[in-house]
Amino acid sequence: MTQDDIFEKVQEVLVDALAVDDDEVTPEATLTSDLGAESIDFLDIVFKLEQSFGFKIEQGELFPDNVTQDPEFVQNGRVTDKGMQTLKERLPHADFSKLEENPDVTKVGEIFTVDALVKFVERKLDS
């Protein structure tokens, strides 16, 4: 499956899960800020990716689990160096460029771009 094929299927998943238009789902769009994803939508996206690509996504594999509640990883509303490192290790597909510029915990959602999902699927299909 080419990257374009994967993008198209990811786009379909997001249009369906988030009730957005095709043209809003660009590679650089973030799931939360740009596409309006809320907490439960992340589970919906996981379910729909599983159905669409036929693989199983373990809890915490695509989106982090409670990292932002850990006081070692977040202090004074900002992601610590250790938190950033942990997130990067757990989520190699995510885009950390914006979060590194401003490690405000409310911006953690920014690491999930459409392109990050496409990369995640590529890795899953290759493994």
Partner: peptide, 10 residues
């Protein structure tokens, strides 16, 4: 969609 809320992401 239903959530098992004791396992919520937040």
């Amino acid at each position: 969609m239903f959530s098992h809320i004791d396992n919520n992401r937040s």
